[in-house]
């Protein structure tokens, strides 16, 4: 099977959907002439022309709204945010327009739109450029929220997002664009709302998503050397969340670590833990432990940044704690 980057998997997904449906277009900052701030749309302008690959001014609120308006009358926009940090300026359009249009119009106006871009911290980008927004977005009924961790999932889920008739927030990992993985040549679509069991084990579950999937897999590898077998549940979609996948795993292992890139308070992990306490209470052998970013803005200094981020040692320590090994 071909091995390609996460970046190219995303590009292939959008290209295939634009070839399949001429209502699909890509709009955002630097997507056309510059070939994409992260080169996801390399070659698109040449292939599809400037009506379907549209460079915008730096005007997130404006072009997010342009996308919603176009979607209301039948187009299928893919709106690229250079980072989700900039999308905060556009949240009124995502939350008050895209997410609510179907409901407040009594079912008359659907909004088939994808908002996508890199999410979470990279390296030393400091406070305003290093944030994971999935818990904010997943709070909103009417939105679907996806955060893929591998090239295979990125491609299959982005195709599903573009075909979905609801507004979808698609959170890519800035540090994932260069990661590689197997992606078949033949077409496939991954259903939204289905988690993936990335590793099977019966001692402890790690429930995670997005960039942290790689950390969870590394933790599973390392712990395997000590004979500890980890079940790695990759949520892939944050909303709707695959509750059954979580509870099936935890009811099997009786122990859980919930790992995410964002902050602790009202985070995605808080919701996962709530499902676990409701559905798996009698099967738990230890309190669930969460791993997440420190409760601070992201610092610039290397050592402090490392201390702030969830990582492999913190994840392994969390597993050891729920297994009463320390």
């Amino acid at each position: 099977m071909p091995i390609i980057t996460y970046r190219d998997a995303l590009g292939a997904a959008i290209r295939e959907e634009m070839q399949r449906d001429d209502r699909v277009f890509l709009m955002g900052e630097e997507v056309a002439a510059y070939q994409g701030a992260y080169k996801v749309s390399k070659g698109f302008l040449q292939e599809f022309g400037e009506m379907r690959v549209v460079d915008t001014p730096i005007t997130e609120l404006g072009f997010a709204g342009v996308g919603v308006g176009a979607a209301m009358v039948g187009l299928r926009p893919v709106i690229e945010f250079m980072t989700w940090n900039f999308a905060l300026l556009a949240l009124d359009q995502v939350v008050n327009a895209a997410a609510k249009m179907l409901y407040m119009s009594g079912g008359q106006f659907k909004v088939p739109i994808v908002f996508r871009g890199p999410n979470g911290a990279a390296l030393q980008l400091s406070a305003q450029h290093s944030q994971a927004w999935e818990s904010w977005l997943a709070h909103i009924p009417g939105l679907k929220v996806i955060a893929p961790g591998t090239p295979y999932d990125a491609k299959g889920l982005l195709k599903a997002a573009i075909r979905d008739d609801n507004p979808v927030c698609f959170l890519e990992g800035e540090m994932l664009y260069n990661t590689k993985g197997e992606v078949p040549d033949e077409e496939y679509v991954i259903p939204i709302g289905k988690a993936d069991l990335k590793r099977e084990g019966d001692h402890c579950s790690i429930i995670t998503h997005g960039k942290m999937v790689l950390v969870a897999m590394q933790a599973a590898d390392q712990l395997a050397k000590e004979g500890i077998r980890i079940d790695v549940v990759d949520l892939r979609t944050i909303r709707p969340m695959d509750v059954e996948a979580i509870t099936t795993s935890v009811n099997k292992t009786n122990r859980a670590v919930v790992l995410e890139e964002g902050w602790e308070v009202c985070g995605v992990g808080a919701q996962v833990v709530d499902y676990i306490q409701r559905e798996c209470f009698d099967n738990l052998d230890a309190p669930v432990v969460r791993v997440h970013q420190a409760d601070t803005p992201m610092p610039y200094t290397k050592s402090l940044e490392k201390a702030a981020k969830p990582d492999l040692p913190k994840t392994i320590a969390a597993v050891r704690k729920v297994m009463y090994l320390d």
């Binding site: 709204g65 342009v66 996308g67 919603v68 308006g69 009358v73």
Partner: peptide, 23 residues
């Protein structure tokens, strides 16, 4: 295409509809 409740919020939607017409 609706009455909208956030002052100013619907103006970009109008530009989007204009974009779709042109598209």
């Amino acid at each position: 295409l609706g009455g909208h409740g956030i002052v100013g919020g619907h103006v970009p939607l109008a530009a989007g509809v204009g974009f779709a017409i042109k598209y």
